[in-house]
Structures are given as structure tokens and as C-alpha cells.
Design a protein around this nucleic acid. Structure first.
Lengths: 101, 101
DNA sequence: GCAATACTTAGCGATATTGCTAAGTATATG
DNA sequence: CATATACTTAGCAATATCGCTAAGTATTGC
């Protein structure tokens, strides 16, 4: 039986979120933000790539609604908006561990 | 504090699995296989793209260990190897629903 | 063996992603 | 106002992804 238009839309929406998560740097950012808000310079220091690169990863996560930003002075702080993402990544831990055998 | 090499490896491994999941067609395949094994021609019919395209999505999922194949006659049947992926995608449902507001 | 069916692999063009550097914006500070 | 700091945006090159068509492989049936 053919995939319905509704199913297609649902999978597209899910894929969009998964795609946003599917990068090592962005997974690190999410885990770090789960411990509390961080400014871009802190994340940049931890990750070890140029700030513009980090900034672009952040805006990508922001675009799908996983994180939120707030400017204070010259700094921009990011916060995790969907703590459920952490629960979700917790599941993933078990899943991908079973693949590494 | 700088990201450790171990953390980097862990995120890379997780990202690899997420990347494999992050496509509408592959999400459909996974959901469909969660209901039972299917041959490539059945999936092709349901998805509505060319068979070589479906075949490539399938080998991608197979490469990360999410599905497994078995040839019977001229047909190749695929099975979901990590049912935990479904639980995982169940979590996702809640997550991405909250983004669609 | 020959043709048909079911699949996979290879190769192509279009498009997306990722990192970089350079340039732009905004806020604090002397 | 001028400079410095923190960040974002733009533009570029390298690479990956995705769909297609064409060609290859393997099994079935005559």
C-alpha cells in the first residue's frame, strides 16, 4: 500500500529534526547545554573549531527549535529548549552501542 | 574544558546512526519493517521512487546495522534488526511534535 | 542455454553540508 | 568618538547526498 501524503509529511518533519541532530559537534553542543546555558565563546573553546562554524551549528539547532538564544551584553547565551531531546539521545546510546559490537 | 577524544568518538558514532535515520524514505522503511519483513519490490511500490534508489537507502541502513537482508529466490527481504530504534523514534515523535507548535 | 525477474552497482548532474576566511553588526569601554 | 570584544553573515572550495538511467549479477523457468 502506497505511503500516504500525511505519512510523507510526518517523516519529512521527523527527518528534519534528526538531520539537525546528526552531527558530532551539534551532539556535543546539546549535551553541554543540557548542563546549563553557555555562550558561543565557551562552546567554541571547548569544541576547537572557529567561532563562525560554531555559530552556524547553533543557528541550525535554533532553526528547528531545539535551542534558544539570549543576548546579554556582547555575549550570546544558548539554552536547550527541548530537554526531551536528551531523553531521546539517551535511547540512542543504547541503540548505537548495540551496533558497535 | 575541551572536549575529550573519547567524547569526540562517541558523538561521531551517534551522529553516524542519526544520519542514517535522517531521511524521510529511510524513516518510512524502518516503520514499515517494524511491522514485518518486506522485499525490495514491495518497499519500492510503497515509496514510489525507482528501485535502485530504494536499494541504496536499504544498504545505507544495513551498513549501520539497523536492518539485515536475506535473499530468497530472486527476492531480497529486509528485516529490522534494532527494534529499539522504534522506541527511539517514538521518543522523537514527542520531541518534534513540540517543535511544530 | 535463453529470457525474465529482482536486485545491486556505477556513474552522472543537481543540490546540500561543512569548514574556512573576510567582512558586517552590536555592545561595552576608554 | 574610537577601539575592542563577541558574534553573525556571506562567500568560497571540498565533500557528501540523492535521485536518475544504464549496466551488471543472480536466480527462476522454459
Amino acid at each position: 500500500m502506497r505511503m500516504t501524503a500525511a505519512a510523507k509529511a510526518r517523516f519529512k518533519s521527523q527527518a528534519r529534526v534528526l538531520k539537525a541532530l546528526a552531527h558530532p559537534t551539534r551532539l556535543f553542543i546539546i549535551e553541554e547545554l543540557s548542563r546549563g546555558e553557555r555562550c558561543v565563546c565557551e562552546l567554541t573553546e571547548m569544541i576547537g573549531v572557529e567561532m563562525p562554524t560554531v555559530s552556524r551549528h547553533l543557528s541550525l539547532l535554533k532553526n528547528v527549535g531545539i535551542i534558544e538564544d539570549e543576548k546579554r551584553g556582547t555575549q550570546v547565551f544558548y539554552r536547550l529548549m527541548a530537554p526531551c531531546v536528551m531523553k531521546f539521545l539517551g535511547c540512542l546510546g543504547g541503540v548505537e552501542a548495540s551496533f558497535r559490537k
